[in-house]
Design a protein around this nucleic acid. Structure first.
Lengths: 199, 199
DNA sequence: AATGAAAGAAACCCAAC
DNA sequence: GTTGGGTTTCTTTCATT
């Protein structure tokens, strides 16, 4: 097998080698493992059913907090910060990845900088159960960057990033064909996403 | 200076050392402070006013897409995938970081795995302008993992991760002291967060 | 801007403690 | 968990184009 540089357990190539049976890919981060329930940075990444809780000690939490802050931290430096040898740090992290505690490492992009300055939270209320059509739309419209199914009056909470209000309008119109929408444009974040933290 | 392993431009130590003077924010917002506007994975990380757009070519987008998928990808492997030498790839990425296109690299954690299986979207409606009290609460309650200010009936859209419904209730009660809340518990994500993509 | 070479550092594996 | 050795790969710098 080809040597995979800095090959964390979540690396697609490595996962393929180590996790023989992939569940059918269902949207979202292509590289993420199947059947995870995550509520990752910022909002949530739910996928499928919740899984069992993992017992973590203070060192595990230190690893989690460092990597939530900077996912590109080298393992040697991470080890230094948590007062653990590189080997032990690597093994801890490997276990956290294998247990599904760490679900991925992702770069964050400023949408405004790349031409998507209009961000919105769109709530969608369904009359019946045309969920398939929504799923199709989610897959196609890349302006939709997240969709959560929730309790309450609204069935779904959707996030979208658009290049203009006119662009957002087109996205909302497509959603409005499926159910009734309530759209809120985002001014800013008094509290931008921060990762989870220990007890 | 101490060698900094894999020291990307966003590394705190390196940022201080290498980016002496930020160019004054030019463009549409006049004298307003040059802040970050990100709508990162899952929800968005807005902070302050939007900044200027950056012109990106197909190679830049390839870098962005790869690192959104796996932030721990080595630069050599990234270069291989986009058909560029490691040096050129590094320089491209350095520019993207310096321009504020890439705002960070973050590990995603499965909240259910670490004892926070209850995720909720809480909308908060303010009667007046007791924003300071909200900001204090946001800073203190680590269950609140994001807060967006939005247009519409509700002033804020808040995300929270709690260990139980009783735990969530306590968080909601604290918010309800400031304004009227509407809470939706998250079932799952038909479309978990996926990063932005090019045109 | 991209390339290629070279030095130092990091990732990895493994054995021993 | 730690240490240390040995190997491969990665990061960074710099000269070159």
């Amino acid at each position: 097998m080809r040597y995979c540089p800095r090959p964390h357990a979540l690396d697609p190539a490595r996962r393929a080698a180590k996790v023989p049976r992939q569940a059918p890919a269902a949207g979202g981060w292509g590289s993420l493992p199947p059947a995870k329930l995550h509520f990752g940075p910022f909002t949530g990444i739910f996928r499928g059913m919740p899984t069992d809780q993992v017992t973590l000690d203070a060192t595990d939490w230190a690893i989690i907090e460092e990597l939530q802050r900077d996912a590109r931290l080298p393992l040697t430096e991470l080890g230094r910060r948590i007062n653990l040898s590189a080997s032990a740090t690597t093994e801890r992290l490997r276990r956290l990845e294998a247990a599904g505690v760490v679900t991925g490492y992702h770069a964050f992009i400023d949408p405004a900088k790349v031409g998507l300055p209009v961000l919105a939270v769109i709530r969608l209320k369904f009359p019946g159960s045309r969920h398939e059509r929504l799923h199709d739309l989610l897959a196609q419209r890349r302006e939709i960057i997240e969709c959560l199914r929730v309790t309450g009056d609204d069935c779904y909470v959707i996030r979208a990033a658009a290049s203009s209000m006119a662009h957002l309008e087109r996205v909302v119109d497509e959603l409005a064909a499926l159910g009734s929408t309530t759209t809120s444009v985002v001014y800013g974040a008094p509290m931008p996403y921060r990762g989870v933290c220990g007890p």
